[in-house]
Design a binder for these strands. Structure first.
Length: 264
DNA sequence: ATAATATGGTGAT
DNA sequence: TCACCCTATTATC
């Protein structure tokens, strides 16, 4: 779940549920005790999603959360049950309680760290202010594969292994095409497609990349295991050919050799 | 029932 | 390149 769409969805939900109230912060698991105590009783102004990072802006400080592969949130209406499992952080508001479990990072940040993060990350398709020119420039002068570049958070923030596979399929591009050989209009199309797909992801709280017009099923009725063209599939959803897999930058890339052009 | 697997990033080697 | 984090989902028996 945790590619950019998940993060932005959580930011939106948590802002709606918890902002403008004084929150009780605890760390039932104990690994964030000092941080929780530091911000206990603070008022949440807003939760921000930036790429795959969550930033909780309080009236007197920031909390940074990165879910990694295993991190999850659980939410309840008050009163919430006793924390179950390794709850790193519990955010308790008057109406809702949110538990954070298994994150790669949960820590108190200052403004400098927030600024550094924003500087380090590439444009985020879910940020209305994002400037894709930075992504075009980086890809255009890189000999690394487009498959690796799309997953590089300093090139494009929020894309993970599923969206990588699906974006490349929809663009008809091989993951192994060097970045500096991808035509500019194709880069622009990739960006716009990322914007569209991630917005769908936020709205439906899941990754859906199949075109409703192509499959004749509306977005909200697409069944599990049938919402993507190539990711983790055996057969291409479009041509029914065999899906190829290969490790690319420590992650398994999925592509359809017949629908996606091979690099020259 | 139990086992395998994963959408990620970091830091050590 | 690999171990780690340590959950939820999916696959297998």
């Amino acid at each position: 779940m945790p590619e950019g769409h998940t993060i932005h969805r959580r930011a939106r939900d948590h802002t709606r549920w918890l902002a403008q109230d004084e929150l009780v912060l605890t760390s039932p698991q104990g690994r964030f005790t000092a941080g929780a105590r530091h911000l206990d009783g603070a008022t949440l102004l807003q939760a921000h999603g930036i790429g795959k990072h969550l930033l909780y802006e309080f009236d007197r400080g920031w909390v940074h959360v990165h879910l990694g592969l295993f991190g999850r949130f659980r939410a309840w209406n008050t009163p919430a049950p006793t924390p179950r499992g390794a709850v790193r952080l519990r955010l308790q508001g008057p109406r809702k309680v949110v538990d954070l479990v298994g994150p790669t990072d949960c820590s108190v940040w200052d403004m400098d760290q927030v600024r550094a993060l924003k500087q380090r990350l590439g444009p985020d398709p879910l940020d209305p202010e994002a400037d894709p020119e930075r992504m075009y420039a980086k890809i255009a002068r890189s000999r690394r594969t487009i498959g690796a570049l799309l997953m590089d958070q300093s090139v494009l923030a929020g894309i993970g292994n599923v969206y990588r596979a699906e974006l490349l399929f929809r663009a008809g591009l091989s993951p192994f095409q060097p970045g500096n050989t991808v035509a500019q209009p194709l880069l622009e199309a990739l960006w716009q497609d990322a914007v569209d797909l991630l917005e769908i992801g936020v709205r439906y709280n899941r990754i859906i990349t199949m075109d409703p017009k192509e499959v004749g099923v509306p977005l909200h009725r697409m069944r599990r295991g049938d919402r993507v063209y190539v990711y983790k599939r055996k057969q291409c959803r479009r041509c029914h050919g065999r899906i190829a897999t290969q490790t690319l930058d420590a992650r398994v890339a999925y592509w359809c050799p017949s629908c996606q052009s091979e690099p020259a």
